[in-house]
Design a protein around this nucleic acid. Sequence first.
RNA 1: GCGGUCAUCGUCUAUCGGUAAGACAUCGGUUUGUGGUACCGAGAAGCUGGGUUCAACUCCCAGUGACCGCCCCA
Length: 455
Amino acid sequence: MAKSQSKTVKKTRTKSKIERAPVEPLVLQPLRGMKDILPTDQPYWDQARRVTERLARDYGFSRIDIPLVEYANLFERSIGEGTDIVEKEMYAFTTKGNDKVVLRPEFTAGICRSYIQHGMSVLAKPVKLFSFGPLYRYDRPQEGRQREFYQADFESFGEIDPILDAQMIQIASRIVQSLGIKSVQIQVNSIGCPVCRKDYRALLVSYLESKKNKLCQDCKRRMYVNPLRVLDCKEDKCAQVAAAAPQSVDHLCDDCRNHFKTLLEYLDELDLPYIINPRLVRGLDYYTKTVFEIWSGSEDGRKSSLGGGGRYDKLIKTMGGEDTPAIGFALGIERLILEMKRVQAKPYKAPKPKVFLAQLGALAKKKSLRLFSEMERNGILVAESFGRGSLKSQLKVANRLGVEITLILGQKETLDGTVIVKNMSTGVQETVSTDKMVDLIKKKLKADNVVVYHS
RNA sequence: GCGGUCAUCGUCUAUCGGUAAGACAUCGGUUUGUGGUACCGAGAAGCUGGGUUCAACUCCCAGUGACCGCCCCA
């Protein structure tokens, strides 16, 4: 080590006349908008993962994992060139091989790519897939809005029936409720198919043109690029214009209107309360017919969208696959967890060790490693503090951990092939031979109605 | 991408243009191989880079980050 250091110094010295390479300081923080998920937060993440995985399984979804990085044009073509995600939120860069790539901003495009590539259209329909992982959007962070964030994503391919739409909304709602978030609002809307949307769009544009001078700068531009999004503008003056604007639900073709009507009937049947939000349009181009979002109840004022989704019946074909109707949605994990904390929902409680192994002296210390492993193999969770020497400090740790039994292994016990089993609540202790130890502990834990976990 | 607020031990919070204080947490001790409380002790901080000044954690500028509002979304 010292040798290589002096070598480095020499090198620098010989180089110093030419140019000394500036040493970048080590930045001890993550990139903007990214954060560590610390052990203290993991119980919430565990809960989010467990609930989504269980419901995915219950509703027949298979897990799929796709790469974090894809070609940029996969998203440009599917999400749409005029959208905010593509226009300004892509976490994009060029590789050494000169490929233009992005860190995935959403799941749908990548899953569709995989669906087409692997010929999943031959599978029994509907093909139901779910995923869980990080997404990246290069925008300005705020609480519940990071550059790296996680979603649970559900996609279903090959079924046009609106019962699928209802079921997807049901799953989303079930996940949120199962996490202990009771008061949520489901918003639904239909933005029609390419055919009726075209007519509606023309109608909307001509209406917006007549009110042009009452719109904000952004919307004056947006009305031609993506007029539906004007309806979503939060500017007061635009909202006023939007309120009187023609609504897509009033201009659906027969097929789309029936689809929407049937969906609402299904939702009524499921007793899922919803509100129709004619201004819900969502920021991605590929949606057709049904779109929906789930909003938190938010008694303390803050409202945030926990997730959303919709139908994208034309996307697979647009991307080069066979004509396949599809619907999907995603939930934002960080937002779910923020909401869980707000409503004091219970996180997942991992099983905690009920046994502590204390050791005293060099010989016992050596022996304790094997003892620990023996118990682990028998499904007994054991805590220890092998680095500590004194029995007193080890018992302190045991006490703090709240274990029921502490095993004490000293010099004497090691030589006798025994171990002291101490009941931490009564203080009573007995000496048993090590070969009977596992059975005895199991019996004691079981007697206390304590589950013994098996690996 | 635009506007605003903020930045001190691991956490929370003081103070000051001239030695940075406390609480919680952590670790150790209060005589031998037994936990709690109490008591004692230890370690631990001015985001980074410039400037003003005899002197900067403090004032100024820039950067970085967090948060808030907008945009948008999850």
